[in-house]
């Protein structure tokens, strides 16, 4: 126990400031100037791997490390789409995940946001489209923001999430008041 406490004390606080939202990630041109929404209540994210190589998952995991400290920003991952405001989707969508992805999307309450992660989520990436791959996420469900990179760094993923929630039309999601 003493060693554990000593380790905690010697490491101290390592969390860093979050990045700015990035205009470059917007799929449409709905991006507003500022993040209007203050994260009054926790933004709930459901992650779905729809066919990724698992590289993007490694960087999404990193968001939870103490340096990016996602929870500290009021963002957390939830286990069910029914509790989610935002779906974080990785991979080209494999045909075997197509039904599961659509089902998850439908199970997520409106209004909902979808952020497609990685070159695969944006374009199908190196896997493209084929007998087993539907390609980009927006071929299967509507996408608000797509974050390129292979894999994108945690900073870029976070910027993509912030970009999505700063879209004014979806502002209710992130506001303190219940919609």
């Amino acid at each position: 126990m003493l060693k554990t406490l000593r380790q905690i004390a010697s490491v101290g606080i390592v969390s860093e400031c979050p990045p700015e939202p990035d205009a470059g990630f917007a799929v449409g041109d709905q991006l507003q100037e500022h993040i209007r929404a203050v994260l009054g209540r926790a933004l709930c994210i459901r992650h779905i791997d729809a066919g990724s190589c698992n590289g993007c998952e490694l960087e999404i995991h990193a968001l939870n490390n103490p340096i990016y400290n996602l929870e500290g920003l009021g963002i957390r991952f939830v286990a069910s789409p029914r509790h989610a405001d935002l779906l974080l989707v990785t991979g080209p969508v494999s045909r075997h995940m197509e039904a599961a992805l659509k089902r998850t999307y439908e199970a997520t309450p409106d209004p909902k946001l979808v952020v497609a992660i990685g070159d695969c989520g944006c374009t199908g990436g190196v896997f493209g489209e084929g007998y087993a791959s539907c390609g980009r996420v927006s071929n299967v469900i509507p996408v608000n923001v797509a974050v390129p990179g292979c894999p994108p760094s945690p900073g870029r993923i976070l910027a993509g999430i912030l970009t999505a929630i700063s879209d004014s039309s979806k502002v209710r999601i992130a506001s303190a008041e219940p919609a």
């Binding site: 791997d49 066919g51 080209p92 995940m97 087993a132 791959s133």
Partner: peptide, 8 residues
């Protein structure tokens, strides 16, 4: 579930 047709 994540079979993407890599070999093809």
């Amino acid at each position: 579930y994540v079979h993407k047709g890599i070999e093809e």
